[in-house]
Design a protein around this nucleic acid. Structure first.
Length: 566
RNA sequence: GCGCUCGUAGCUCAGUUGGAUAGAGUACUUGACUACGAAUCAAGUGGUCGGAGGUUCAAAUCCUUCCGGGCGCGCCA
């Protein structure tokens, strides 16, 4: 939308201004204030070259360009050091309706990623542990980035780097053979598995010898013991099934599962390659790669011969780049692992791979809790599922009070409750830490998920009451300040998608949707729609329909559903 | 100690990558439902953008330094 307007200006005036069209394109900004038109061009840099005061130069340029305006451009005005472009009302309206109503399902999509593959590692939990609130961020941020990448034309592979290897499986296997029969594995497989996990750690605290038993079992697993491998497969399967149940609620879907175990036979070759390239070094019996003075060395192999986290991620990076042929490789993992990824990326750089700059650690801040430190081992955790159920229950109460006649209250409560939790997480910049607070997560008023959904529901309600098909084109100009402001916001949708993706920041989109809703609220309260003359009614309904489409598609990109009513 | 990161209204946070008068929500005060859905809208109160320097036409934004919070710093993942 807005890029189309920028395109018109930059192409039309490139020669007049003696600039390249694409350079001019980048200089054009979207002004904050309504009175400043649709696009604005700062001339300060040129003023210096021409040794003129910026307002004077702006005046001159505005006068010069006004002589030869492109179709659709209404006026060019100089304001201090800016040249502001205002397009004709009807032109903007037609552009919006063409770009929104006629492109439903893929509004604002771009082709910058066409023909490129993007691999994104997100929401990768460890087997046998239930997901707690800490897992929410990696899941929803990752899924939103998947959706954003698709909007930019990328071919996306959502990767589940499942934590399915390590000593804990030895422990679980030991616990299962010892106590497994005491738990209802048939009826509640995942709960049983988790109980075993907690019990093992409880008992191990009293009796430290159990740790050794676990290690022994894991060694057997590594050596390919068929019995234990069967158990391991079962644990993985049980866990994945339970995770998918939660992910279904969040609209999360991976395209490929490549757990840590997948790389078991790919780590030796990595080590050999490091050795061949002269990077490997022995230190206190362990094998390391030195990374210079400003970074701790990267540990490749323990003194006892076992491989490590970093080794696995090196193998994984090679797999993603060489075999999955990724053009962009993202890791949606918490900030606490920043050093780890810096080390891994640095090692790959030293190995001479030119694609290291295609790898990005998409870090997000940590959850913090007011009270106790939460440890999964001891079972002191806020489970994600509990957060969902509390949100859903609360929404049910609100529906019973505000809209008791709603046809499908259970389904809507789910959409609104979970939407609230997801939105609450995505609305803030991911780099910041989050103090988990029930009151705030369950606040459905003000700038929140339900607010955006409510706004969309109102649009849908208007369309229903209108009763006729909504026109896809405008028959008259909408000129009130509220209508103008609302349309100016809609123009920014395409840039918002691009911006959110390029920075890997979902909150840019979430914040934008809030802005559209504010503007819609103002429009809705000020401008009567139904009951006005046929022409006004029709034109305003077209605007309402556009808002509905933007909210629906914007929310969908955040992985949040928009109900028809609530 | 070293590295990374954050610091904006009482509280929770935005601020379009250096642009025009720093904005929302919440809380508090007040107004609007026989009204297209009040999970809404409107008005008011609330700011030394952590402090100090610097870069330039222009700094909440970039650089330096200090203060404060968070995370991390070789055999866990």
């Amino acid at each position: 939308m807005l890029p189309l307007l920028k395109d018109i200006i930059s192409r039309h005036y490139a020669t007049d201004l003696n600039k390249q069209a694409d350079a001019l394109f980048k200089l054009l900004e979207s002004p904050k204030q309504a009175g400043h038109g649709h696009l604005s061009l700062p001339v300060f840099a040129w003023a210096k070259e021409h040794r003129k005061a910026p307002p004077v130069l702006a005046q001159e340029i505005a006068a010069q360009l006004s002589v030869r305006k492109p179709a659709g451009l209404e006026k060019i005005q100089a304001v201090s050091g800016f040249v502001n472009f205002t397009f004709e009302n009807r032109f903007v309206q037609d552009l919006l309706s063409a770009e929104i109503l006629k492109k439903r399902g893929h509004v604002g999509y771009a082709e910058t990623g066409k023909g490129k593959k993007l691999v994104i590692d997100f929401a990768s939990p460890n087997v046998a542990k239930p997901m707690h609130v800490g897992h929410l961020r990696a899941s929803v941020i990752g899924q939103c980035l998947v959706n954003l990448a698709r909007s930019q034309g990328y071919e996306v592979t959502g990767l589940n780097h499942l934590g399915d290897w390590g000593v804990q499986f030895g422990k679980l296997a030991w616990a299962y053979t010892k106590w497994g029969s005491e738990y209802p594995f048939k009826e509640k497989p995942f709960e049983s598995l988790f109980q075993l996990y907690v019990r093992f750690h409880d008992e191990a605290e009293k009796n430290p010898e159990l740790e050794a038993e676990g290690s022994k079992m894991f060694k057997k697993l590594e050596e390919g013991d068929a019995e234990i491998e069967k158990l391991w497969k079962m644990f993985v399967e049980i866990s994945l099934k339970d995770y998918q149940r939660i992910w279904d609620m969040l609209g999360i879907k991976h395209d490929l599962v490549r757990g840590e175990s997948f790389y078991n036979d790919r780590m030796k070759p990595v080590e050999q390659e490091l050795k061949a390239k002269g990077l490997l070094e022995e230190s206190d019996g362990a094998m390391i790669v030195r990374l210079g003075d400003d970074m701790a060395p990267c540990l490749i192999r323990k003194a006892d011969g076992a491989s490590l986290y970093a080794t696995r991620d090196l193998a994984s990076a090679l797999y993603r780049m060489n075999e999955l042929k990724a053009d962009l490789n993202l890791y949606v993992v918490g900030v606490d692992q920043t050093l780890h990824f810096r080390q891994v990326f640095k090692v790959l750089e030293l190995m001479g791979y030119p694609w290291v700059n295609k790898l990005h650690h998409i870090a997000f801040g940590m959850y913090r809790f007011k009270d106790a430190k939460l440890s999964t081992r001891k079972g002191h955790t806020i489970f994600l599922e509990d957060v969902f159920s509390r949100a859903i229950e609360l929404v049910k109460e609100i529906i019973a009070k505000k809209n008791p006649d709603l046809a499908n209250p259970d389904e809507v409560a789910k959409q609104v409750g979970i939407g609230a939790i997801v939105f609450n997480d995505l609305v803030n910049d991911r780099v910041k830490n989050v103090d988990f607070d029930w009151d705030r997560a369950l606040d459905f008023e003000g700038d929140s998920g339900p607010y955006v959904q409510y706004c969309g529901v109102r649009c849908a309600s208007l369309v229903r009451r209108y009763g006729k098909p909504v026109a896809e084109t405008f028959q008259l100009d909408l000129t009130t300040p509220e209508e103008q402001e609302l349309m100016r916001s809609l123009l920014n949708y395409q840039d918002t998608l691009r911006n959110a993706f390029e920075n890997f920041k979902p909150h840019i989109l979430a914040g934008y949707l809030i802005e559209v809703c504010h503007r819609f609220g103002q429009f809705y309260n000020k401008c009567r729609i139904l009951g006005e003359s046929d022409e006004i009614q029709a034109a305003r309904m077209t605007l309402v329909q556009m808002v509905h489409v933007i909210l629906e598609e914007g929310l969908r990109t955040l992985s949040i559903e928009l109900p028809e009513a609530m």
